[in-house]
Design a protein around this nucleic acid. Structure first.
Length: 625
RNA sequence: GCCUCAGUAGCUCAGUUGGAUAGAGCAACCGCCUUCUAAGCGGUCGGUCGCAGGUUCGAAUCCUGCCUGGGGUACCA
């Protein structure tokens, strides 16, 4: 609100001073462009004021040096009541008075949902993220996408966007077959062992070697008739070694059986993943099933033929190639292998085609932004996907903003001080293990407190050993402190000297203060200055707090615009720091009921804002710790 | 080789659409609990912003080259 006020004031001053500034206000378009580049920010040096505006961008339009422009503006701004302007070189600095601060605080108090705005009102977003293969448990890397994606969904919605979070279940293709086959091999092992027979040395190693496959195999065997199925498969399998059956014939024979086992695995893992995500507070509205939604409906065939028909494909070496090199890709990509099966790209193109084809009730495209979160290992994939989507006419060119990929750098799991490469195919700590050890709040906060384009080291031992030094507790503690103050205000703790203390404020009065505060409730806040009994820094801390609260909406808009939840994490920490500092120099509950009332209003606002910031990150805001 | 992300305090990272004297947390050291939660506060220490050029009134930020590390560079998914 304060930034808005400053920008309004500045615009007006420019308008009035226009004649002295080479008629700067006449060229509306140019001026608007320049004003868009002017930032209103908090200066690093406190003595420069509360807000600073660097007016250098104006100098080319006004044909004057920045210092002269500043001088002229300063004169113009001298009439301003609640803003005191001064200039140094090319900067116009503003100092705000207590009335404006009180208004800003009142504004944050009366806002039902802090930071709520409509900056993304016209955005309809389909965000696909996590989309882990249903062939095993989620690992730590998926945790990062889960935390990042879900926080983005919450932040975008807070800024007025319509968002559908979607999870793509890869329940078709080679990996699915491999997990089924792995379970079959493990089941055979278990049957052999149960019958007191050893496992032959030359027995095939399962494509997925993890222990969780063994668990799933025994789960599978506990189902009715499953043992008979496995034995039948095993018998055929032996015939291959005896030379009675060819390997190819065996493949044909086992295919449907393995598919059955695969389906079992996919459903089990998928449910497991979903449950863990829900535990983390990560909720998907849509679960898109590759097999049923694409393959069974012939959509993959359809899209490939369409690309072929439209002349974007050619055949070479028995394979079908997409001419992605026509669209900035360094080479062409195979859609259909020479053995007739599709590469991973083909169903994925079909999937994205489907995303773009979704329409609302008015036959209009349902989404104007289709966004994916992908790991950095999929980086090379972006261009070929864009190429296919451009060929299909969904994108007007390769830079079309309708399709975005948020590329997140990978997570290194650090165990015993050593990096462990993450991957599904070796024994490792799963995301579930990490959540168990570290907790949802700490994990989620950790995952989003760094920008997505930095590789993240997740040190399990550190997270376990130093949970109390984790930054998330700092923010949560501030919230708990606020809650505690409010509790004490209404119901003070009895002591030996005073077994029945008088409340500082009645429950009803606090309620009223929270629901309908007035500016008169707040102005006594600034009496700290006069009182002088507290630390002389109290006023500065108070000002920082109020300006921070006032800037919440701006931070959210920035986070939403740049898809950067870490801005919100940082905000929560900054607000917590401002509060902790203030708390230490200024007592909230005093004998003066008017001052107490005003300070409680401040606490209400801090608590509300902090809770909202944490909520947007999927982190709880406890009332006590 | 090419593409891409990163390199900022001992450690983990903000800041990068060019702006004032470079910012946190952790670690280390010194203080602060008879009073609202010390999971806190105040202070000290700590920097050639990877290196070298360039662009300009001004560069951690933009350009070029180089160095180091991560990821990618499949008829794998």
């Amino acid at each position: 609100m304060i930034r808005y006020k400053i920008s309004e004031t500045l615009n007006k001053a420019l308008e009035n001073a226009s004649p002295a500034l080479n008629d700067i206000a006449l060229d509306r378009v140019a001026l608007a462009d320049v004003l868009g580049r002017i930032k209103i920010e908090r200066p690093k040096q406190k003595d420069h004021g509360d807000y600073a505006v660097n007016i250098s961008p104006l100098s080319s339009l006004a044909k004057l040096g920045p210092p002269q422009i500043a001088q002229i503006l300063e004169k113009e701004l001298a009439h301003c009541v609640d803003l005191e302007a001064s200039t140094i070189a090319g900067f116009v600095n503003f100092r705000i008075n207590t009335l404006l601060m009180a208004q800003a605080l009142l504004n944050t108090l009366t806002t039902k949902v802090p930071g709520k705005n409509d900056s993304l009102k016209s955005d309809t977003i389909l965000l696909e993220y996590v989309s882990a293969n249903p062939t095993g448990p989620l690992h730590i890397g998926h945790g990062r996408w889960a935390a990042l994606g879900d926080s983005l969904v919450r932040i975008w919605r807070h800024c007025g966007a319509t968002v559908t979070p979607e999870f793509y279940i890869n329940n078709a293709g080679v990996q699915t077959f491999k997990i089924g086959y792995s379970i079959y091999l493990r089941a055979v092992e278990q049957i052999l062992t149960a019958n007191g027979m050893g496992i032959p040395d030359d027995m095939e190693a399962p494509p997925y070697p993890g222990d969780y496959v063994k668990e799933l195999a025994s789960q599978y065997l506990s189902q009715p008739k499953s043992k008979e199925d496995i034995l039948a498969l095993c018998e055929k399998h032996l015939q291959v070694f005896e030379g009675v059956l060819t390997s190819d014939d065996f493949q044909v024979f086992i295919q449907p059986h393995i598919e059955k086992i695969s389906a079992f695995a996919v459903e089990t893992f998928s449910a497991q993943q979903k449950a863990l995500l829900e535990t983390m507070g990560v909720h998907f509205e849509a679960w898109f099933r590759e097999k049923e939604m694409l393959h069974d409906r012939g959509l993959v065939d359809e899209i490939v033929s369409r690309l072929k028909h439209d002349g974007f494909c050619y055949e070479q070496d028995g394979a079908l190639w997409l001419q992605s090199s026509d669209f900035e890709d360094e080479k062409d990509r195979v859609l259909k292998k020479s053995d007739g099966s599709y590469t991973y790209l083909a169903p994925d193109v079909a999937y994205h085609h489907q995303k773009f084809s979704r329409a609302d009730a008015d036959e209009q495209p349902q989404y104007n932004r289709i966004i994916n979160i992908w790991g950095a290992d999929h980086h090379g994939y972006i261009i070929r996907m864009k190429a296919a989507l451009t060929a299909l006419g969904h994108l007007k060119d390769m830079d079309d903003p309708r399709f975005e990929v948020i590329l997140g750098q990978l997570v290194n799991l650090i165990v015993d001080g050593e990096k462990e490469r993450m991957g599904k195919r070796r024994k490792m700590l799963t995301l579930a293990d990490v959540i168990d050890e570290v907790g949802v709040d700490a994990t989620r906060f950790w995952m989003v407190s760094k920008s997505a384009d930095t590789a993240l080291d997740f040190d399990v031992d550190l997270a376990q050993a130093e949970t109390h030094e984790n930054p998330v507790y700092y923010a949560q503690y501030a919230h708990a402190r606020c809650a505690s103050i409010l509790r004490n205000a209404v119901e003070p703790t009895p002591t030996e000297e005073n077994p029945k203390p008088t409340p500082f404020i009645s429950f009803e009065a606090l309620d009223e203060l929270s629901d309908s505060p007035s500016i008169e409730d707040l102005t006594p806040l600034f009496n700290v200055l006069e009182e002088g009994s507290e630390d002389s820094n109290a006023f500065e801390h108070l000002k920082s707090l109020i300006l921070r609260l006032d800037a919440f909406e701006d931070s959210l808009k920035e986070a939403a615009k740049t898809s950067s939840p870490h801005i919100v994490a940082r905000y929560a920490l900054d607000l917590a720091a401002d509060f902790h500092s203030f708390y230490n120099v200024c007592r909230i509950l005093t004998d003066n009921s008017v001052i107490t009332r005003a300070r409680l209003a401040l606490i209400l606002s801090i608590k509300k804002t902090l809770a909202q910031a944490l909520e947007l990150l999927g982190v709880s805001a406890p009332d006590s710790m």
